[in-house]
Design a protein around this nucleic acid. Sequence first.
RNA 1: GCCCGAAUGGCGGAAUUGGUAGACGCGCUCGACUCAAAAUCGAGUACCGAAAGGUGUGUGGGUUCGAGUCCCACUUCGGGUACCA
Length: 824
Amino acid sequence: MSEIVEKQSYDFRAIEAKWLPFWEQDGTFVTNTADSRPKKYVCDMFPYPSGDLHMGHAEAFAIGDVPARYWRLRGYNVLHPIGWDSFGLPAENAAIKNNAHPAEWTYNNIETQAESFKRYGISVDWTRRLHTSDELYYRWTQWLFLRLYERGLAYRRNSPVNWCPSCQTVLANEQVVSGACERCGTPVTKKALNQWYFKITDYADRLLEDMAQLEGTWPERVLAMQRNWIGRSEGAHLDFPVDGGHTVTVFTTRPDTVFGATFFVVAADAELATELVTDEQSGELEAYREQLKSVSDIERQATDRKKTGVFLGVYATNPTTGARMPVYATDYVLADYGTGAVMGVPGQDQRDWEFATAFDLPIVRTVQPAADFEGEAYTGEGPAINSANAEISLDGMEVEEAKAKIIDWLDSKGAGRATVNYRLRDWLVSRQRFWGAPIPIIHCPDCGEVPVPEDQLPVTLPTDMRGEQLAPKGQSPLASNTDWVSVGCPVCGKPATRDTDTMDTFVDSSWYYIRYIDPKSTSEIFPTEQANQWLPVDQYVGGVEHAILHLLYSRFITKVLYDMDLVSFTEPFKALLNQGQVLNGGKAMSKSLGNGVDLGEQLEAYGVDAVRLTMVFASPPEDDVDWADVSPAASQKFLARAWRLAQDVTSARGTDPAAGASGLRSLTHRSIADAESLLGAQKYNVVVARLMELVNAARKEIDSGAGPADPAVREAAEVTAQLLSLVAPYTAEDMWQLLGHEASVANTAWPAYEEALLVQETITAVVQVKGKLRDKLEVPVDITEADLEAQALALPKIQRYIADDGGVRKVIVRAPKLVNVVTG
RNA sequence: GCCCGAAUGGCGGAAUUGGUAGACGCGCUCGACUCAAAAUCGAGUACCGAAAGGUGUGUGGGUUCGAGUCCCACUUCGGGUACCA
């Protein structure tokens, strides 16, 4: 018989089948929160259970698993949980279509995703799994609502709201994208409804200021988007007396231009217009409002639209000039920004200029534009002009000074004051749909709004509604379930009704990352002490589509919890990584384009590790990956090469590597050192590139160098298995076993590099002439500047350049790497 | 319009503090193996040029001995937001 043992080839299916049950039985990734080692909390934005996992999930989770596994090797106690954001409309729509209950669709999909997820080998603690649609969870969402209610942060108000005619529900401002529903793209209409709001505007300043904590660890663009969304602007409130005994306050960022206010405009759709209009003009106002109804939101947002409006028959008085200013209703003033009323200053505001031109109103400049200014309204810097009355003059002052001066003056008259205005509006949280957490409020004819007593939580959803019973009819389907709606008033006991709206699913997801600390608790929302120990999340990973929505809401809720003394931190996510999208052929995958790539098919064809490796290697984590540009087949090839390394090693486990090939050894140790800094900088793609170099070098050493018995080869293979485990856990685990280890590679210690092996004896110095590379020199690393200079100048090639170019003028030496000869 | 971000070979992308541009991979070319192909392995691959050499990191300028990297101006592309007073 031949001595040669038949070597097996890399078989990812067999490897997956072997290790998946191992991790589960071994409890490799279960986190013991009582463990005293320093902690790291890595959290991926939890998925919505819409069918099976897709390529986008595959990228996000592959990326998030890298720091989780790295920190685990570094000796941290790592918390890496998973759950499902399982309330929401798609389940309800599916239930209507299939004559089912939304829970069926939801929990079936969760099971499917969970199976795929396990197969995908992400190092999460399955014992902490949560679903926001579980009674166990939404009981606490309701509890949270009641705490906000107690603090006056949850309130009900009747006002025009965004209505999606297709989803048959209201939407928060954050969920309207260019006038259309964020979910389905249907143009949004306005509807007057009595709705629940969270008072996020109370936190506007803190949401803005606390961003200082996130600077540098959150993507700059996300911070910018939040800053814009909050839209802080400093200005003043000015009071204008209006005929009929009214005083109308406006918000302006340019109080210095008040002398130039020649007319007055209020939002046509605001109550204010009705209050101000004279009887003679009220017909015209109504006609104008009718006319506006036919203008879609999309049209309305076109900035080049002609200014329209209607005179209300009354005049306001300019407190600085005493001028009588006609009052108009218009649609270019927004009812829900500022006070819904604006002073018209055509000289300094382009929109006002256009309105003044259309209605033939006077235009007065109050800031002197530069001589070459050719525009209409002038919004720039310059000295004030035409801005004086008997008591005060701003003339000659620059804008900032004039602002301060006029605010002082108006303040002394009781006619104005400095103020800060925000673009952010309160968060509309009620939804007229079924599959969400019911709002825990009871409406009693005698007692009014009554919170559901805590011991009666959760207010559970009926389990017997299905199909058509869930169809949206302009109000929540729950309203038609009289058994469910009818309830005794908790205060007086008389017949009362439950609130039939459910909460926006963004309420569910605004606090789930804290619930992971103890997801099964029935006695409290989360244990405060442990939450303070584990949070904030050290690394949060998710798509940029939540730059405003989920992240703003989570920041808000965290601050509310802080104010309630339930947590000691004010920001939930210390660092944020926005992974890119997975594209195909330059475009987002979509059914309509027919360019979708099925994750299951990819996993079937190339294996989990190859798909994960491809995702990580393709580009920096925050960049998009175009599946048409990458090669999972090549990833698989690399994994086979790496795996074969482990198989080829013939030295025994524990062999001292000191006697091994020094070139390979120093590359191995440099790879470890570089991986540390690259992982810290989140350059995961480059870590993979370095690993490929290491595998190539080890291969060469086996085939045409010191051979498979060299201890340096074992060392390289072991380090490869450990580094590879961050991205390709199955292959790494199998390599580790082939190398003679019993326990999981995921729980080994990060390899320590030897400083001495990083130091090279010789180095290639470059020799430049006038900054251009002309020659190279192999020199000892500790060469003196003088020696290096002498050797460089002695090079024949360099001498030729010097001779041709008029001799040496100056020599720059940066030993041992560079010499630059300046000639002429 | 305003606010962010980006621009490097045929492609995805590398390049601590300014110091060898193009690591690693894909693709392509050639070669080995094969009856042949696939797979695998080896060699080459920024551009122009036969070579010597020259040119090169969106464009134009600047600072510097030296710029992908710093400064100024601009162009293009991507994203966000938009009658926000």
